[in-house]
Write a protein that binds this DNA or RNA. Structure first.
Length: 260
DNA sequence: ACCTCGACCTGCAAGC
DNA sequence: TGCTTGCAGGTCGAGG
């Protein structure tokens, strides 16, 4: 998409999680894509018009890229799935299709002046893989929080982009119980606790490893705790059995032996 | 201001 | 086979 012009936008329904904004397709058509960025779980596509296309995949959203004119069996028409909701046709011959069975995804178009006031973006915590994210930042964000550590990690204001799988994975890597109050890793006397140091490092390691696996298209990815209820803990020397609990309506997986 | 809960949707697997 | 139930990678508004 980067550098290309958006020649055509086809909306195959009127809404995803929310309605598309007024004039969505018209405001996109003919515009050039300046960049394709990400902040937390949001995709940001600034355009030459001064608008930014804001997108979120929700739970089940995905993009597919087809090459116009590429050979396909039978006709030259591209196949359309019933959950293909938006089709972008680009000047470089690419056709980018947004598919989302559950429609928890989101597309919005926001003028740059208003973008800075966009609530979720404005309040979003630090990018975990950026230099600015460390034990001190994490500890500060957890200060005074009465929620559990697991629920705090899912709060995008604490740290950006950590979802339900990697919240559990990071806590296991840091050997911290998901049930602890978030405030228990907060700063004492100006210095982050060892638990905050471990958790900040674990988040980075777990996310980098996950991105790596995806980059290598390794679909054999094995989680250490996620979806492993009843299975043995994978920590060396630990004889624990992975447990599943529900926190804030979401599944949490952890080892009750090595996570404290 | 902070927190928890249910709602929003469809698809799939397990159990009966 | 066909029904029901529960669960799924995420927000977000209502209400406590």
């Amino acid at each position: 998409m980067r550098g290309a012009r958006i020649d055509r936008v086809e909306l195959r329904r009127a809404d995803l999680r929310r309605p598309f904004p007024a004039g969505f397709a018209n405001r996109l058509q003919g515009r050039r894509v300046r960049a394709v960025d990400r902040r937390g779980k949001y995709l940001l596509v600034p355009l030459d018009s001064g608008d930014t296309l804001l997108m979120h995949l929700g739970m089940s959203g995905s993009f597919r890229v087809d090459r116009r004119g590429s050979r396909r069996a039978g006709s030259g028409a591209l196949t359309i799935d019933r959950h293909d909701h938006v089709v972008f046709t680009l000047s470089n011959g690419a056709v980018v299709t947004f598919n989302d069975p559950r429609r928890f995804g989101l597309m919005d178009l926001i003028g740059d002046a208003l973008l800075v006031e966009h609530r979720p973006l404005e309040q979003m915590g630090p990018e975990p893989l950026a230099a600015g994210f460390d034990a001190a930042a994490l500890a500060a964000a957890c200060a005074g929080k009465r929620v559990s550590l697991k629920v705090a990690l899912l709060d995008q204001r604490v740290v950006a982009g950590v979802g339900n799988i990697y919240a559990s994975e990071a806590l296991h890597a840091a050997q911290l119980s998901p049930l602890r109050r978030a405030a228990t890793i907060a700063t004492v006397a100006g210095r982050p606790r060892a638990s905050a140091v471990r958790l900040a490092a674990a988040i980075k390691i777990v996310l980098r490893a996950a991105i790596d696996r995806k980059a290598r298209r390794d679909h054999d990815a094995r989680f250490r705790v996620y979806e492993r209820e009843g299975d043995p803990c994978r920590r060396r020397g630990c004889r624990g059995v992975i447990r599943r609990i529900v926190q804030a309506g979401r599944s949490t997986f952890y080892c009750p032996i090595c996570q404290r």
